[in-house]
Write a protein that binds this DNA or RNA. Sequence first.
RNA 1: GGCCCCGUGGUCAAGCGGCCUAAGACACCGCCCUUUCACGGCGGUAACCCGGGUUCGAGUCCCGGCGGGGUCACCA
Length: 481
Amino acid sequence: MEVRTRFAPSPTGFMHLGGVRTALYAYLFARKHGGKFILRIEDTDQERFVEGATEVIYDTLRGCGMDWDEGPDVGGDYGPYVQSDRKHMYLPYAKELVEKGAAYYCFCTKEELDERRAAAEARGEVFKYDKHCLNLSKEEIQAKLDAGTPYVIRLNCPTEGESAYDDEVFGHIAFPNSDLDDMVLIKADSMPTYNFANVIDDHLMGITHVLRGMEYLSSTPKYNLLYKAFGWEIPKYVHLTTVMRDAQHKLSKRDGDAYYSDFISKGYLKEALINYLALVGWNPGDDREFFTMEELIEAFDIKRLNTSPGIFDVTKLTWMNAQYIAKMDFEDYLRMATPWFDQVLAGKGMDYRRLAELMQGRTEVFNRIPDMISFLAEMPEYDLSLYFHKKMKCDETVAKENLTLMLPVIEGIQDWTEQNLHDTVMAAIAESGKKNGAVLWPLRIAISGLANTPGGAFEIMYLLGRDETLRRLHAAMEKLG
RNA sequence: GGCCCCGUGGUCAAGCGGCCUAAGACACCGCCCUUUCACGGCGGUAACCCGGGUUCGAGUCCCGGCGGGGUCACCA
């Protein structure tokens, strides 16, 4: 049988990382087995229509390399793929269940229910619908229906025994039926509840494997009751652990660390993000850590999905991101880095190509670039103690002495290339009998004001240009007294 | 609170009864390389939640406790 998985997000305008990972696993599983990956938009949330929200979903998934075989924009044999376009499909199914005795009309109002719920809570009990309307006679029901009394349709759950199923990752899971609540299938506005629509859609779309968050673990018995009542085949369940921010919190939008777009705009590479995300809750069983999408498809196996929640470690993601950046095509790096360079260097006429060469291996996340290179735009304030460096055998006095020695040498350089800068200065150092470090260290400090810079003295002098370099050197001499 | 799930170093994790005096990666700390930083190389610190069983033998199986998470809507 052909494997069919789906990703069914709500168009909220943002893609949660947990959602991206769920989509990824569903995608990988389908591809791994030569099956189909379906995209279904669950937009029954009537009140909140977000402009462009479905595009966010499309762009994220496609951008990451997850293409779907069926969906709103690509069509398919099981459409429509947008839930709001399927509105009319659900009520008949609910009525079928009523006829089969698996569901029933309920006329209790929301207010009555709230009251009873509050009362139960006051008694310290868990509220469960008491099947009040299940006892209504056929005549009573018909009378109310004829009178146009608002109603909902509820699932008639068993009250004894237990419901069990075998989850593909968690194994055998059993629940006492006495805990099952007669959930609403059709709301008073005749629209289906999320859970009901889900089951109908999954069945109609021929979904064979349901990959979803483990928050559905405890409502799955009710899903199964529905499948059984219809006489439909129950899909395989692959419940996924939660992606956490720390041991007790999920990734949340509040902290700005939950959305795919948060990371992309900070300058994380989607390949790195996907690669890292794949590894939170899953591993290939060997030591491999770097995967292309193709390699993930090849290696993916739901048997290796973990059962305990994983914490999303930004530090490790950042490391992985740096690895990806270092290995990316230089032209791509230059193109991506340019806007970040522009933030502090726009209009300076800086050699971006050379700068990019120096920066590529040092960029962990693109948004850290401006801080790393702002010294090129403007000489930072710095303390004279920076000239002290034990290993370089340097301090203020040495700095002053060696800088005084080098200033005329550098001033005499007209052919301002890195190579020439290097050769001329190194020759002068050799001639002076000084230690390389004792000259180069203070030289770099004098023109950068920083202990750490992306590149050494020659690279920076070149980048700065002759005028600016000399200006900074003179300022340094003055500062050193 | 009821029910369900989970519990190996700070984090991701391997381990599926003996090969574990417990891999690997990130982070951290040293050292080396280097005109700085980074990269790279080498080395180091650091874990089986607790208590009972079962077994010749338990991180690995069972039970209990504790801890964490999830779920208990006419939300999705």
